[in-house]
Simulated assay, not measured.
Amino acid sequence: MRAVTWQGKRKISVEEVPDPRIEEPGDAIIRVTSTAICGSDLHLYELFGPFLDAGDILGHETMGVVEEVGPGVTSLRVGQRVVVPFNISCGECWMCRRGLQSQCERTQVTEYGSGAALFGYTKLYGQVPGGQAEYLRVPLADYNTIPVGTSLPDERYLFLSDILPTAAQGVAYAGVGAGDTALVLGLGPVGQFAARIAAHRGARVIAADPVPERRAMAERYGVTVCDPDEVPDAVAEFTSGRGADAVVDAVGMEAHGSPGVHAAHTAIGALPDAVARPMMEHAGVDRTAALLQGIDVVRRGGTVSISGVYVGNADPLPMKTLFDKQITLKMGQCNVKRWIGDLLPLAERDDDPLGTADLTTHRVPLDEAPAMYETFQKKEDGCIKVVLDPAR
């Protein structure tokens, strides 16, 4: 089969690789009909080389049709249309029963002290082959699939794999409700959905991003938008100087406005893997400009919810400010299955209130993935969300 593979920093190629096969009784093989490039895939493209091997298959936003099932699969049938959550969990352990599927005790990557294994996402999360391919092996398939209908296009369902529940969790963790003022930092795919979900909950939403096309998309959903440099003044005006009730950081570790850490990223990327790995695991390697801005502009007693990915273990935080302002921080890898019961009915509604069909800006054949990684990373050509079509 053809698959999108990592070959080195900013080096992506589509290669012929062996088809996946049933390895455990609970496995299923999915024929992929749509698979997306996620903003967190760009961290692999740019930074996470020390935890990848050449030839690793990328991708963790996937849906398709069941082609084959193992003898232990009980709830799936061949020909069924499914979405595949990006985290791999068992649904039965202590963590899963409490809605913390991203911490599944059966699939935790104990070698690196990490939570549940993920599709297509480095040794830190199990080095499981990803879904930017013609076929995908899904372990524990009874639980790690979301059966969906057949009448709606893929884009109405695909984002249930990651970015829609990630945004929903970010908004829920922020405690956003009707009448609140919510600030969303970053209007990539997760930020777009976070702003829409917050507005759907009845909040007044302001969102910041440096890219005009991203701001224009958010405005279609009643969101007040601004450039990141304008955030302090915009929030002060929006809230009569009090500050936002809640902030969702949908930017993460590669935020603009942190030139020193950006230089460190470049330097670490040039080191041998054996040297770079411990530096990335233990150093403060995150560009925290967006997070620090969120802390500055949230009101006293407010909440900052972090959906963007951070990886540094020594990142400095303004503890005096956090304590003095009584700020609550909530964060974490999304627990996809926890939110599907709320989100699937919204995705299937005729009026599509969260705009699941209004996010994809580029739908291209799998072979165009290398070029689209570059376009997405450089924020060129109005690129907000890329969906790859293995059948084209």
Score class of each variant (00 low, 15 high):
Thr266Asn: 13
Val261Met: 03
Asp249Glu: 10
Ala246Cys: 12
Val251Tyr: 01
Pro272Asn: 03
Arg287Asn: 01
Val248Ala: 02
His282Ile: 13
Thr303Ala: 00
Val304Pro: 02
Arg299Thr: 08
Asp245Glu: 04
Ala290His: 08
Arg277Trp: 11
Gly269Ala: 13
Ser305Thr: 10
Leu271Pro: 08
Ala274Tyr: 10
Pro278Glu: 04
Pro259Phe: 08
Ala270Lys: 15
Pro272Ser: 02
Ala270Gln: 15
Asp286Gly: 01
Ile268Pro: 06
Val248Cys: 09
Ala250Asn: 02
Arg277Ser: 14
His282Pro: 08
Ser305Trp: 06
Arg300Thr: 15
Ala274Pro: 02
Arg300Pro: 14
Ala250Gln: 00
Val304Cys: 01
Met279Ser: 08
Met279Ala: 14
Leu271Ile: 10
Thr266Asp: 15
Arg299Val: 05
Ala289Leu: 02
Val275Gly: 07
Val297Phe: 02
Met253Ile: 01
Gly284Leu: 12
Ala250Asp: 00
Val251Trp: 01
His282Met: 14
Ala270Gly: 15
Ala267Met: 11
Gly284Tyr: 13
Val304Arg: 09
Asp245Gln: 06
Ala289Glu: 11
Gly252Glu: 06
Ala250Met: 00
Asp245Leu: 04
Ala263Met: 11
Ala289Thr: 09
Ile268Lys: 06
Val261Tyr: 00
Asp245Phe: 05
Gly269Val: 11
Gly301Glu: 02
Gln293Asn: 05
Thr266Phe: 14
Ala255Lys: 03
Ala267Gln: 13
Asp273Ser: 15
Val298Ala: 07
Glu281Gly: 07
Ala276Ser: 09
Gly294Asn: 01
Ala264Glu: 12
Val247Leu: 04
Asp273Leu: 11
